[in-house]
């Protein structure tokens, strides 16, 4: 099913900007907020996993029911998960489209990667000596 993806700040994301390897940051930034009726249409329960696919790639997130949203729109707090599928195109303005992106959603049994696994997938190395 097609959806419009918006990304943005949340308090929980903000509280974890200095604690990015904590579970709280992972849970918040890998959440996909979605209208409860859309959850029903996707045959998903709150908390189950969903694959979000954009023209730039795909990422597995945890669906979280949220009535603030209009049907047909999803919200993902800004962070490495949302950015995994945001195209790096700026239309010559310097600013990518972090909001209002068309994506496809489907239910999945796959697990989410962690934020470190996302970084390692592209050649990074987690820092573990904390």
């Amino acid at each position: 099913m097609k959806f419009i993806l918006n990304t943005g700040r949340t308090v929980t994301q903000g509280r974890h900007v200095e604690h990015k390897y904590h579970q709280g940051y992972f849970e918040e930034t890998s959440s996909c907020f979605i209208h409860p009726l859309d959850l029903m249409d996707l045959d998903l329960e709150d908390g189950e996993h969903v694959e979000v696919v954009s023209e730039w790639g795909s990422v597995v997130l945890r669906a979280v029911s949220c009535e603030d949203l209009r049907k047909g729109m999803i919200f993902v707090p800004l962070g490495p998960f949302a950015n995994h599928i945001i195209p790096p195109r700026t239309h010559s303005t310097g600013m990518p489209d972090f909001k209002n992106i068309t994506v496809e959603l489907a239910r999945t049994e796959r697990e989410r990667l962690t934020q470190w696994e996302l970084m390692e997938k592209i050649g990074g190395k987690r820092y573990e000596n904390q």
């Binding site: 800004l78 962070g79 950015n83 995994h84």
Partner: peptide
Amino acid sequence: SDPGAHFPRGCVEHLAE
């Protein structure tokens, strides 16, 4: 700042290189 978290993957990939 933390572009690793806040830049699209297509940009961050180059940082890793």
